[in-house]
Design a protein around this nucleic acid. Structure first.
Length: 876
RNA sequence: GCGCGGUUAGCUCAGCGGUAGAGCGCCUCUCUUACACAGAGGAUGCCACAGGUUCAAAUCCUGUACCGCGCACCA
């Protein structure tokens, strides 16, 4: 390795290094690309020449892991292809620094707590982490946000450095942060726009509620978990005589019972419809009604409706206009006796309040146990509880079941637009196409409007205030909206028009909306954030809709769906024309690789052991939508491919510096040898196929066959041709040089999206100068038309390769070196094959070390079959 | 329950009507004026199962089983 110093500066390189050292080469190119502004978007070029990417903003509060590298590299591969098609690429990067993870990090790091009620403190300096919870400093929301921005900026620098190191061809001037001013402004403007268009409403209504985080959550953030529970059979009395037994898994909701229902056709219960039941323990009168929701096969066929056990209860309650008897509070505990006594309309009020007193204040689960005890004691429980598997809704990040709790929330109307949203989704080209099914299923299964308000501190505030009446009561029915030009603002510290700050929370004054928006309300706007919909209409027109949205499949229901929704509501458009859905990286035990999974191999570690190109190779081997095994042996294959490219290029460059290649520039007319023509013809086909497949998002298939062709190039064509190149016959050697020069330029370009470092490195040795194209990444994607007159019969190549293989097999069987001389080579083949073989005879004899005198070609065989070859090795 | 993927060599996967493929791993061998960070050669398969369509099925159809995922069910 005597010659490794020139590696350090690609621009000043003169000799070909002995070996490829990616660790030295790759970082140098990262810097060079930035200096050259290679990936900058040019706003002056028209939309139709532009390729716009709606990059997923990674969450900034952790470490990047191999899963990130995998999917972001896949995106970069597709982007690089588009750039080589001549597109003006708009490839931004966003940082998702909004939400709970950042909130927690900043609290701990700076020892602060957010209190939205506090006023803003200019020039606030945090004092650092605190040991004790009580020492935490309480600061205003705006101060808190500033700290969040400060901290995330540090993390973002780290992320950016790593992304650059992996060769992402992002225009780093085009970044945004979801907590930043632009995003808050866009998000708030979106709210105002949707409000004015009637897509937004606020309502006090039962909402999916997480009792741990004490916030509303949207349907999209729920997941079903199978848990084992118990069916309890409970006797209800019928007013005027009789009884029946219902089955329930949530006996603690008895006090919240508002009706009893059975299937309309259920003969067992038909006579009861219209009558009134008395709930056990509480003796509350509830109607017995027919409902298609009741399944005669399930439980006892008759069931209680409560406020609220599930979404069906909510719907029934709404439809039948039944009373509200909410007993579960925001914190998951049962309300006080005082609260419940307001609606506990009992036939035996004292007994009822007594019974409720036993469970008031308990968590739902504790109340369940207690209720069962009471039912048992009262002899109302029929038999023993039976175990059952039930699916229960959880917040995806929570560990307590969700409840339906009535609360005032902001919603975006989506239920009445399912058909339109389905239609919008259909207009997007999904890659792979079956991923559309997920979108379709999700939209069809929607049963709630999109709840966008969260009872958290950290997030984009609603640009809304409410008037406070003379009695000090907030009038939620008359929201005061901010003027668009004042955005972004915070109603907790900013004042509504026509009011002064001293009227805040005072009678005849105003109150700010305390809730913040769901993070998806912001991230659903990413294509409109990077296009600057909020403040630059001309730019927006040029960048929206985007061409490609890369993302993972598990967030089709959230990110993809919400983005499609908002693009339709705001712009009556799809947000992007293509959705490229990447798979997951799975660990060898088939689980999803994630940071929580332990076994933390960081991308930094991998860069030390392998190279950016080799990891990119691994990502490029996986097609879209497909989960991929984490497999370091594939990194090694990528390493080897890069090394091979290096060596084959070095050889080619040496030929190009030989006397045969000197003088006038090599061109198609120099390619005179039939073998070279045949080879060039095959490369033309490769170039054309690659374009078609890449354009169809089939980059993995394209990589596979390009790789195969490249190894064939090295093992067969190069081996056949190199002796001729050395031979000193000027014309024949020149033909080889011309074919090699073009072939290598094609391979470098085909591999460039996958292996941007090694290809750029090699490109710089000669093509940058000779083709006046400083970077392979801006070189045009290869076409057949580049090599106009070199058509040749492919048979030459095929037959020659076959015979050479036979020679090699013989040498391997005899345990002789590849260079061992062959004394006799007898080929029996068809006449066409024979003719083809004779066209490349010199190359064949030299590559196989065959004595010309020992060659016998018999045309007695068939052109339909492979030639039959007999080889005899020389005895030395 | 409904839907979507998948099941091919020891492993990871490609092929998706015309003689079963690649890489890794394994076994032989070879210093060869690009590359030993390499090269040459070899072994390895009832293409999950059962039916059907076809001259011909890993490939198309219909079922079944198993794996992964999505949606729904939540009394």
């Amino acid at each position: 390795m005597e010659n490794d110093t020139p590696l350090k500066n690609p621009a000043e390189r003169t000799a070909f290094p002995a070996a490829y050292l990616p660790a030295a080469v790759e970082p140098a190119w990262c810097e060079k690309w930035e200096q050259e502004k290679l990936y900058y978007y040019d706003p002056a070029r028209p939309r139709k020449e532009t390729f716009v990417v709606d990059t997923p903003p990674p969450t900034v509060s952790g470490e990047l892991h191999v899963g990130h590298v995998f999917s972001y590299v896949q995106t970069d591969i597709m982007v690089r292809f588009q750039r080589m098609l001549g597109k003006n690429v708009f490839y931004p990067m966003g940082w998702d620094d909004n939400g709970l993870p950042t909130e927690r990090r900043v609290q701990n790091l700076f020892g602060v707590r957010c209190d939205p009620a506090l006023p803003y403190t200019p020039d606030y300096k945090p004092t650092g982490p605190k040991k004790d919870l009580k020492d935490y400093e309480h600061i205003s929301r705006r101060n808190f946000l500033e700290l969040c921005e400060l901290q995330t900026a540090v993390d973002e620098k780290k992320y950016e450095a790593l992304w650059r190191r992996f060769g992402l061809s992002v225009d780093w001037r085009q970044t945004y942060s979801t907590v930043g001013e632009l995003c808050r402004k866009t998000s708030q403007l979106s709210f105002l726009d949707l409000f004015s268009k009637g897509h937004v409403y606020s309502a006090e209504t039962p909402t999916l509620w997480d009792t741990t985080f004490k916030t509303a959550v949207a349907q999209a953030e729920c997941e079903d978990r199978e848990v084992s529970g118990f069916f309890h059979d409970i006797k209800f009395a019928v007013e005027g005589g009789g009884e029946f037994t219902i089955a329930t898994t949530r006996p603690e909701l008895l006090a919240a019972c508002i009706a009893v229902v059975a299937h309309p056709d259920d003969e067992r219960y038909k006579p009861l419809f219209g009558k009134t039941a008395l709930t056990p323990l509480f003796k509350v009168r509830v109607p017995i009604m027919p409902s298609y929701h009741a399944d005669p096969e399930k439980g006892t066929g008759i069931m209680m409706i409560c406020t609220f056990g599930d979404i069906a209860d909510v719907e029934f309650w709404r439809k039948e206009k039944l009373p509200m008897r909410q007993i579960i509070g925001n914190d998951g505990r049962l309300h006080t006796v005082e609260h419940v006594s307001k609606f506990l309309d009992s036939a035996d009020r004292e007994a009822a309040l007594n019974a409720y007193g036993a469970i008031a204040g308990l968590y739902a689960k504790q109340a369940r146990t207690k209720t069962v005890e009471m039912l048992k004691a009262a002899g109302i429980l029929v038999g023993d509880p039976r175990t059952t598997k039930q699916a229960v809704k959880y917040y995806e990040k929570g560990d307590q079941p969700l409840e339906f709790v009535p609360a005032r929330q902001w919603y975006i109307r989506i239920l009445n637009s399912k058909l339109q949203l389905l239609e919008q989704g259909r207009k997007v080209a999904w890659h792979p196409d079956y991923m559309f099914k997920r979108y379709e299923q999700w939209v069809e299964g929607l049963n709630q409007d999109w709840c966008i308000s969260r009872q958290r501190y950290f997030g984009v505030p609603f640009p809304v205030w409410f008037p406070v009446d003379a009695a000090g009561k907030i009038d939620y029915s008359k929201p005061i909206l901010a003027a668009p030009e004042r955005l972004p603002l915070d109603p907790a510290t900013d004042c509504p028009p026509g009011y002064t700050e001293d009227q805040r929370n005072k009678p005849n004054g105003f109150a700010g909306e305390p809730d913040v928006m769901d993070t998806w309300a912001t991230s659903s706007l990413t294509p409109m954030i990077s296009s600057r919909w909020a403040d630059d209409k001309a730019r927006h027109a040029n960048l929206f809709p985007a061409d490609m949205r890369p993302q993972a499949h598990e967030i089709i229901r959230t990110w993809a769906f919400y983005t499609i929704t908002k693009a339709w509501m705001h712009e009556n458009s799809v947000p992007w024309y293509n959705a490229a859905i990447s798979g997951w990286v799975v660990s060898p035990d088939k689980g999803k690789m994630s940071k929580s999974k332990g076994k933390t191999i960081t991308p930094d570690d991998l860069l030390k052991t392998y190279s950016a190109d080799s990891l990119r190779y691994w990502a490029g081997k996986a097609k879209l939508g497909q989960d991929t095994m984490y497999d370091e042996s594939v990194f090694k294959v990528g390493m080897r491919l890069a090394t091979k490219l290096f060596n084959a290029s070095k050889f080619t460059m040496m030929q190009l510096q030989s006397p045969a290649a000197a003088g006038t520039k090599l061109c198609a007319a120099d390619i005179t040898e039939p073998l070279d023509k045949a080879w060039v013809e095959s490369i033309k086909g490769l170039a054309e196929a690659s374009r078609v497949d890449f354009a169809a998002y089939e980059y993995a298939a394209m990589l596979l066959y390009t790789e195969t062709a490249f190894w064939d190039f090295c093992d067969n064509y190069l081996e056949l041709v190199k002796n001729r190149a050395y031979s000193g016959k000027p014309e024949a050697a020149r033909s080889a040089c011309a074919a090699l020069e073009w072939t290598l330029s094609v391979f470098l370009r085909l591999f460039a999206p996958f292996l941007p470092f090694i290809t750029e490195e090699v490109w710089g040795w000669s093509y940058a100068e000779s083709l006046k194209l400083p970077s392979v990444h801006k070189a045009p994607w290869p076409t057949a038309a580049e090599m106009p007159s070199a058509a040749g019969a492919p048979l030459v190549l095929a037959v020659t390769r076959k015979v050479l293989e036979a020679v090699r097999t013989k040498k391997a069987a005899e345990k002789r070196s590849v260079k061992w001389p062959v004394s006799k080579l007898a080929v029996e083949c068809g006449p066409k094959q024979a003719a083809a073989l004779k066209l490349a005879l010199d190359d064949l004899l030299l590559a196989g070390c065959v004595a010309p005198a020992g060659l016998i070609i018999a045309e007695t065989g068939s052109d339909e079959k492979d030639p039959s070859v007999t080889v005899e090795l020389a005895v030395v």
